[in-house]
Design a protein around this nucleic acid. Structure first.
Lengths: 192, 192
DNA sequence: ATAGAATCGGAGAGCTCTCTCCGTTTGTCC
DNA sequence: GGACAAACGGAGAGAGCTCTCCGATTCTAT
């Protein structure tokens, strides 16, 4: 199961070029327009017929995954790298702020993180859980050293993260999400 | 302009009953399913043909407005009533929390507040601005007495309010938004 | 009871979106 | 350069949505 890439022959040169171009354009389109953009529109912007794009990505979801999955994976990897950091509070708040910052500039990433699970991942993928788990570990450590209020659970922190991204909804001045993250982090900190 | 209600004759008894029923069902449907529910689906749930519902409400928007506008207006009225309250900090935080609480149980209200302006109001309506203005006044007063950090602008507080409602997205345990409001209010408070 | 107006019902026009199918074009290998 | 597989293009099927139209039905006033 799922071993099709081993028997697949290499793509023709033009096909590989076109595939790259589709990914490039899709990335830009998703960043500026979010998950609601249509497949047809991406094909149009890339200058291909819709059939061509479907040849490379069998569904709209597959294309969106190809563009976005790596981004989320990087967040998870960052969290893992911080799992043994010296200052657990700093690690948690730093990661939280950084995720908000990175996502803020990308409408699709905001949509995806915000809606809990706007993009249905390939069945079997545990990325959603991985993200929550990584967040949960940073949170727990920060709580253990007394940097974060003890009454927050993982879901709370996840919700607060999603909440920050709301500020980045279409139009409006930039940087709203980062301002929100600052306030929200203050709220999560243990009080003096 | 807009004087049709003075010349309109009263509705037939059955029509009035049906109109009430549509409003009732639409209210329930919007509360549980949010703004994405289709007009056809509301007609189906109410047990009417779609033409009948359109007879009472000329567009989907008009129906949604009829259900939701009053709710928002009440928020604005509450804010105005608090504009001269003794304790400006308490007034601001209390109103903020109350709006979140009220909206939390109503998916459509969340969608509407959250998306900045998901429901395009009748041109000429200033409800959106009224809401922001009322919020801004409560905020400014609370800042003047030192209860809220001085570096927040109206837009920030509005974004934070919208952010709290994200927690109420479909499924998931109830009360997330209220927990978030607590954390967020702590974040907005001036630090000791 | 009956005429006539008010109201209802739902098929379907017209739009958008995802995805398929297959005739046409293009790259590759000899 | 020619043969053949690979890749492209875009019309259109099928589904869902908003909203219209008008024949069928129901209420009301007399």
């Amino acid at each position: 199961m799922g071993d099709d890439h081993s028997t697949a022959r290499p793509l023709r040169a033009d096909a590989r070029r076109n595939r790259e171009r589709v990914l490039q354009i899709a990335q830009e389109a998703l960043a500026s327009d979010g998950l609601t953009i249509s497949f047809d529109e991406i094909a149009r912007r890339a200058g291909f017929g819709v059939g061509t794009v479907y040849r490379h990505f069998p569904t709209k979801e597959a294309l969106f995954e190809a563009v976005l999955l790596g981004r989320i994976e990087r967040f998870v990897a960052d969290a893992r790298a911080l799992a043994t950091a010296e200052d657990a509070g700093r690690a948690f708040f730093g990661w939280f702020t950084q995720v908000v910052e990175q996502a803020a500039g990308n409408q699709a990433l905001c949509d995806m993180l915000e809606s809990g699970s706007g993009l249905t991942l390939r069945p079997g993928s545990t990325l959603e859980d991985d993200f929550a788990a990584a967040l949960g570990r940073l949170l727990a450590r920060a709580q253990r050293v007394g940097a974060v209020r003890g009454d927050l659970v993982t879901q709370d922190a996840h919700d607060l993260l999603r909440g920050c991204l709301v500020a980045e909804r279409r139009a409006r001045a930039r940087g709203g999400a980062v301002r929100m993250a600052e306030v929200v982090c203050d709220g999560m900190r243990t009080k003096r």
